[in-house]
């Protein structure tokens, strides 16, 4: 992992890193990734990936309205709002 990759991933992660942090992360993540390399010693050609540990499927709810939280509770944790909108810095499309 190099600096360019760290910067790419940091951007994907929406995390701002200082130059010093980048250095530390390059070192630490490289270590972890080389440890993870051990997976490549296994042949998994015909193995199915496991996303869920249980044999279950088809879980649904019916199309019935349920009461939502109160209006105050919608904004109880919001930093910025105007009327009944959440407010964010200007988004340029």
């Amino acid at each position: 992992m190099d600096k360019k990759e760290i910067e790419y991933i940091a951007n994907l992660s929406r995390i701002e890193l200082t130059e010093a942090e980048k250095e530390v992360f390059i070192h630490q993540l490289s270590n972890i990734l080389s440890y993870i390399e051990k997976l490549n010693t296994l042949d998994t050609e015909n193995i199915k990936p496991l996303a869920h540990t249980m044999n279950a499927s088809n879980v649904f709810r019916e199309d019935k309205p349920e009461s939502s939280i109160s209006r105050e509770d919608v904004f109880i944790n919001a930093t910025a709002k105007i009327d009944t909108f959440f407010k964010v810095p200007k988004v340029i499309e």
Binding site: A80, I82, T84, F85, F86, K87, V88, P89, K90
Partner: peptide
Amino acid sequence: ADYSLVDF
């Protein structure tokens, strides 16, 4: 205006 508004 330096902001946008969100409606979910």
